[in-house]
Design a protein around this nucleic acid. Structure first.
Length: 895
RNA sequence: GCCCGCUUGGCUCAGUGGUAGAGCACUCGCUUCACACGCGAGGGGUCAGAAGUUCGAAUCUUCUAGCGGGCACCA
């Protein structure tokens, strides 16, 4: 059998996925156990725009690890894939594409434009599904959903109507965040505050007779054209007399009142604030409190309106600012201008400065929904955030300060708001136009042209994908889902809203746990972003190092932020190669052997290394299961890595090699070979959730694999590692005494290797090894493994007795339990060198002893520390003392 | 402004009230019959700084510094 020395990921990545998918292994139906518990994850639907980035690969890997793990544990497992229509992003993307053809969306018209978006969605979405297949994501494609699917859109309308009928959704004329570039309203979450250096202008508004008046400070002088009051703090003595009086608003000829409002901070600026109810959220609130007129002076294109005065009408807001300042200066009313840093609201997407405008929009009242979510968290700690700190608090404090959600968007791509207007202006909210006509008794209806915020449909995802409002089997089986895995950037936008709406309409939280993944940063600690061009394409990493290696790296990221480094993937690529070669060894020596569950048990008579590897295997299974249960991905990866490389490859294979590679067939050889392939098979299963491709590739080649190895729930499937049972730890095979014995052996071998290395003895030079062990038990261990010791040390002879009797010219090492090893080096030994080597050893011991004795010397330690610990310390000190004595003797003899 | 997190060997990161860990990098030796994407042996850290709690602190508390994040209506 020819097996290449190097693992070729591309080859393994070629065929398995297709077979898994075609065979229906990703679908929960493959599980034939009627009593199987359900495990479900719904994917955070990626935007149909663009392609997957490292963040997706990260989340998908973790979801896949958990999904594959649960599937192997026999759960009825579903990981449901899908995509989000991503309203604004998608519309902008297609608009940009059209622009290249010299066409605007208005040229096309709404209907044609939407057709065009669907066409675009088909191509872009195809890219994403292709990439997910490459990742190895074991999602059930037969259940793939899109937020604009007919049934999901139905759920959107249903929810909208119900919320409207309950009075939670309302239409109102309120101040909103308007993006003059995207020409739509935005929710608070789609606006980002950016600190910026700017100017603070002090404008004087004179009294009616031209004298006195008040001075206000503002960063936006142009809005003064829409001022309808000046506000001061009611407790501000400076202005007390002015409250109730008026000032003449320059440039407009209007007279505006001075009102008192608690909102005003006397410490800031002049303590007097200009009030522009139509163009500032705070002023809007004050306007409401004082019944002030709202004068709209800026329009949707951020240009001044007629109401701003003929002189300003049509001017851009910034041009108008200059002009207002100029005129104040000419009038002698510009008191001063100071440099001032403040934060400004920008459109998260296009970075245009937001214009607060009063506008008729649809809103969702959040109090009731919010209270439900907060109560759930307080009473049942759901959802459980991982890591709990800081995300639980981030989530709850955001909820506590929640304001109404602006639902409508002035876009074409999205769920059109299910509201119709009669010619008389009556509003009819209904599930369909037909229903609206019925309700209105009128067929002259016009539908609201706006669409819903993308997140309105996303929040329904955990139940709309299962067919809600129909009572489907899937809904019954898979809701609530088990865990949500996502990045921290959408805790508010998405996670919280799913909880609120899921609770309201399903009566239960949409997921038990929320795992927040870390963020992958670039080498300099910067966030990866398109604009910075510092992103790393997961596909390129896959090509370079293989999917499995990349997945292992991504798994170990867990929930902490980490800087990307190719080197780490490279080391996991090397690990994959290690796995490949361990299997290569097993397969090259597999004649007469087959995977056999019987080989996974041992008796007290079994060889030490056999008892040991099974102890390690079972401990590994136990630890990995435990780690995954707590979403400790990094720990799981480390456990597996060291089990496979250190325990299985470095020690087990080496110790069993002599038996396995024996030339003549024998029951002993067969047993050894069987054990190796069987342990390897278990190791592959343990690794499979993390490294699906290489494990399947190798598993399929192992002799004796078949249906009988599958988890009982998958009786109908063809042999595949992805449906094999995940190894269960057998506590009776975990044996600390065995591990202690093995450790003694490892120590012996390591000490002698150290002598070889430090004494510069050629690796090929056979050496005699003399072992002295006064402890009978220890001696028995050495005796039982004499062949292994000989082999691993390339010893010409190994003698084991209770006391070392070696020539003076020997290199020595002190072992556990008073044991000692000597390597006679007549003619080879450099006494000075050996003294130096032993001296170093002694120094280490002395340092440790000093530390321990200081601790024991503290009378309060013996008094207050647990007796067990004191005893342990005494034992250790005694051991060190013994070794030190032995070393001293050895050194003394070296002359 | 408020809240939170991080600070561990050259680098990237684990860890934890009781002997400081890994991978990479580094040094030395090795074409040892699975693997040089390897094998063996090493060097390297007073766990940011200070104070406190404790028999004992890298781990708990407080403060300081640096970095990062979230929230906030201050015109």
């Amino acid at each position: 059998m020819e097996i290449p020395k190097q693992y070729d990921p591309k080859q393994a990545e070629q065929s398995h996925y297709e077979r898994w998918e075609k065979s229906g292994y990703f679908a929960p139906e493959i599980n034939r156990d009627p009593d199987a518990p359900a495990f479900s994850i719904v994917i955070p639907p990626p935007n149909v725009t663009g392609s997957l980035h490292m963040g997706h690969a990260l989340q998908h890997t973790m979801m896949d690890v958990i999904t594959r793990f649960k599937r192997m544990c026999g759960y009825r497992t579903l990981w449901l894939p899908g995509m989000d229509h991503a309203g604004i992003s998608t519309q902008l993307m297609v608009t940009r594409e059209l622009k290249k053809e010299g066409v605007s969306r208005h040229d096309l018209g709404r209907e044609k434009f939407i057709e065009r978006v669907w066409k675009w969605k088909k191509e872009s979405g195809g890219q994403i599904t292709k990439q997910m297949r490459r990742e190895g994501a074991s999602v059930d494609w037969s259940r793939e959903k899109f937020t604009m699917d007919e049934d999901l859109s139905g759920a959107v309308r249903e929810i909208f109507v119900r919320l409207y009928e309950e009075g939670l959704i309302y239409r109102g004329n309120r101040i909103v965040n308007w993006c003059p570039n995207d020409q739509t309203v935005l929710s608070d979450l789609e606006v980002e505050k950016i600190a910026q250096a700017g100017k603070l202008y002090y404008l004087r508004y004179p009294a009616k007779n031209g004298a006195g008046g008040v001075t206000v400070a503002t960063t936006r002088p142009e809005t003064m054209l829409g001022d309808t009051a000046v506000a001061v703090n009611p407790n501000d003595a400076r202005y007390r007399d002015l409250v109730g009086k008026t000032v003449a608003l320059p440039l407009t000829g209007r007279e505006i009142p001075i009102v008192a409002d608690e909102f005003v901070d006397p410490e800031f600026g002049t303590g007097a604030v200009k009030v522009t109810p139509a163009h500032d959220p705070n002023d809007y609130e004050m306007g409401v409190r004082h019944s002030l007129e709202q004068i709209v002076v800026i329009d949707q294109h951020a240009r001044m309106t007629e109401a701003a005065g003929a002189e300003f009408a049509g001017l851009d807001r910034y041009k108008a600012r200059e002009k207002v300042v100029e005129q104040f200066e000419e009038l002698g009313l510009l008191e001063k201008v100071i440099e001032y840093e403040f934060s400004i609201s920008k459109c998260e997407r296009c970075k245009t400065v937001i214009e607060p405008l009063i506008s008729m929009q649809w809103f969702l009242r959040m109090e009731e929904l919010r209270d439900g979510a907060l109560k759930l968290l307080a009473s049942r700690r759901k959802p459980q955030f991982v890591p709990e700190i800081p995300y639980e608090k981030v989530y709850s404090s955001w909820l506590e300060n929640l304001r109404d959600w602006t639902l409508s968007r002035q876009l074409w791509w999205g769920h059109q708001i299910p509201a119709w207007y009669t010619p008389a202006g009556e509003v009819i909210v209904a599930r369909s136009e037909a229903e609206a006509r019925d309700k209105a008794g009128n067929d002259q209806l016009t539908q609201d042209p706006d669409v819903l915020d993308t997140w309105f449909s996303s929040q329904l995802w955990p139940f709309s994908v299962f067919g809600w409002p129909e009572k489907t089997i899937d809904l019954d089986t898979f809701y609530p889902t088990s865990v949500l895995m996502t990045g921290r950037d959408i805790i508010f936008l998405w996670v919280s809203r799913m909880v609120m709406i899921g609770l309201k309409f399903m009566g239960r939280e949409p997921f038990a746990d929320v795992f927040i993944t870390g963020t992958i940063l670039d080498a300099h600690g910067q966030r990866m972003s398109k604009t910075k061009m510092n992103g790393i394409d997961p596909l390129e990493v896959f090509d370079k190092y293989g999917v499995d290696a990349t997945r292992l790296k991504l798994s170990s990221v867990g929930s902490t932020d980490t800087r990307w480094n190719d080197k780490q993937v490279e080391s996991y690529r090397n690990f994959a190669n290690k796995i490949w070669n361990a299997a290569r060894f097993a397969l090259m020596n597999s004649e007469g052997a087959a995977v056999d569950p019987e080989a996974l048990s041992v008796s007290p008579e079994s060889a030490l290394h056999d008892r040991w590897i099974l102890s390690r295997l079972n401990k590994t299974a136990r630890d990995v299961r435990q780690s995954l249960a707590g979403y400790e991905f990094h720990e799981a990866v480390q456990t597996l890595y060291h089990f496979f490389w250190d325990d299985f490859c470095d020690w087990y294979i080496e110790l069993t090699k002599a038996d396995v590679t024996a030339e003549a067939a024998s029951p002993q050889r067969t047993a050894a070979r069987t054990r190796v392939v069987s342990v390897l098979e278990q190791a592959l299963r343990l690794l499979h959730p993390f490294m699906p491709y290489i494990t399947e590739e190798l598993w399929q080649q192992l002799p004796g694999v078949g249906k009988h190895l599958l988890h009982p729930a998958y009786s109908e499937a063809e042999p595949t590692i992805m449906l094999a049972g995940y190894p269960e730890p057998k506590s009776e095979l975990i044996n600390e005494n065995t591990e202690w014995e093995m450790q003694a052996l490892i120590d012996l071998i390591s000490r002698v290797r150290n002598i070889r290395s430090e004494m510069q003895i050629k690796p090929s030079e056979p050496i005699p090894v003399l072992i002295g062990a006064p402890d009978e038990k220890l001696r028995a261990v050495y005796n039982a493994n004499k062949n292994q010791i000989t082999r691993l040390l390339r010893a010409s002879e190994v003698s084991i007795s209770d006391l070392v009797e070696a020539p003076k010219a020997s290199a020595r090492a002190v072992l556990v339990g008073g044991a000692e090893v000597a390597v006679p080096l007549a003619g080879l030994i450099d006494f000075a060198q050996e003294r130096k080597r032993l001296g170093k050893e002694r120094e280490k011991l002395a340092a440790e002893a000093a530390k321990l004795e200081a601790q024991l010397g503290n009378p309060q330690f013996a008094e207050r520390a647990p007796a067990e610990r004191v005893e342990e310390l005494r034992t250790r000190i005694a051991d060190i003392a013994q070794r030190t004595t032995q070393l001293d003797q050895t050194i003394a003899n070296l002359t």
